[in-house]
């Protein structure tokens, strides 16, 4: 409600306001690489590399401004390993080498226009330990919710987790960014770093499902979440009714729990806060990057994937 009032005030002022243009001659940032890479042991390394631009400078329809001519060199344990090749189908740079446990993976990304970016990550994560996981679907206010229950046994140390359903509903992607915390064995873990939560209940955005173990180090952490399942297609209400009454409705995909490194954690939670901030928020929202002379992150993860079909219990109507 507080957000509604503030937004209403700004909305009213915008409606009543007069809009005009002014020139800006201040300092803007140079264009840089934007890097995103999530490394996993025994998997090829894939770099998504695009570029930033000064506000208003992206070309029209340039919605995915990938950089296709960068020199991306990978080093393993400070020894040059290979130059990554660009895959035009997936629009990313890929390696042949598959990182092993305890490898230190460093990289440089370079081209004439965006300069040189550097970063590194060490593949020293251990597998997350899950004592129990289950899920069921419930319907609240004619909306599907995925209720996920999980028990995580933390092994001590500084750990960062990412819990993210990767779901499809009848071949359509499901957005699970809005979530309600129904239960936490330790209060304030899941939304600790979230800047945008509702005052009514523990609901909010944790776009990438990241949290840290500061409050449950070396303990079991029980978490019960209710994901609002929004589908990515038009007329979903009609299809929703059609699908719900059909016998072969299935939610497909998996729930992924991963341990991630600090680079990834810092970037992802700040990115989530920026995504869900409103334009008239008067404080700037900063993103924690882990690549020098570039934006973005290079991190690594250790994942466990749970097939949704295996963990889904009988559907509940409420």
């Amino acid at each position: 409600m507080k957000k509604i009032i503030i937004l209403s005030v700004f909305f009213s002022l915008f409606l009543a306001s007069c809009e005009y243009e002014i020139d800006y001659n201040g300092q803007l940032a140079d264009d840089k690489f934007v890097v995103a890479a999530f490394l996993e042991e025994d998997s090829t390394v894939n770099f998504t590399i695009s570029h930033s631009a000064k506000p208003g400078m992206y070309l029209e329809n340039e919605q995915s401004p990938r950089v296709e001519n960068a020199d991306v060199n990978m080093y393993v344990n400070d020894q040059w390993k290979e130059k990554l090749s660009y895959n035009s189908l997936f629009r990313m740079y890929s390696s042949t080498y598959r990182p092993q446990h305890n490898d230190k993976i460093s990289f440089t990304i370079e081209n004439e226009r965006y300069g040189k970016a550097e970063g590194s990550t060490r593949m020293n994560l251990t597998n997350p330990v899950v004592d129990s996981i289950s899920a069921h679907i419930t319907v609240v206010d004619e909306e599907d919710r995925l209720v996920l229950y999980i028990e995580i046994q933390d092994d001590g140390g500084e750990n960062y987790y990412m819990l993210l359903p990767d779901l499809k509903y009848c071949d359509d992607m499901v957005d699970v960014s809005y979530v309600e915390v129904l239960q936490e064995s330790v209060d304030g873990v899941f939304f600790e770093k979230s800047a945008v939560t509702s005052v009514i209940g523990k609901k909010g955005y944790n776009e990438y499902g990241v949290f840290n173990n500061n409050k449950f180090r070396n303990q079991k952490f029980v978490l019960k979440l209710s994901y609002y399942l929004n589908r990515w297609y038009d007329d979903f209400i009609e299809d929703d009714k059609k699908h719900r009454k059909s016998d072969d409705v299935t939610l497909k995909g998996s729930v992924v729990l991963a341990k991630i490194d600090k680079n990834a954690y810092e970037y992802l939670y700040t990115l989530s806060n920026v995504v869900h901030s409103i334009p008239v928020n008067t404080s700037p929202m900063y993103i924690n990057n882990s690549v020098s002379n570039a934006y973005g992150f290079v991190g690594n993860k250790k994942t466990i994937k749970f097939n949704i079909a295996d963990i889904l219990q009988e559907k509940e109507e409420k």
Binding site: L28, S50, K54, P55, Q63, Y295
Partner: peptide, 24 residues
Amino acid sequence: NIPVANYYNPLATNIDNMFLVNIY
């Protein structure tokens, strides 16, 4: 506060989460 740069979400998986990220 005015952004000094922006970029598209590098983790976007579809057109609907291809949002612009402001850099301050």
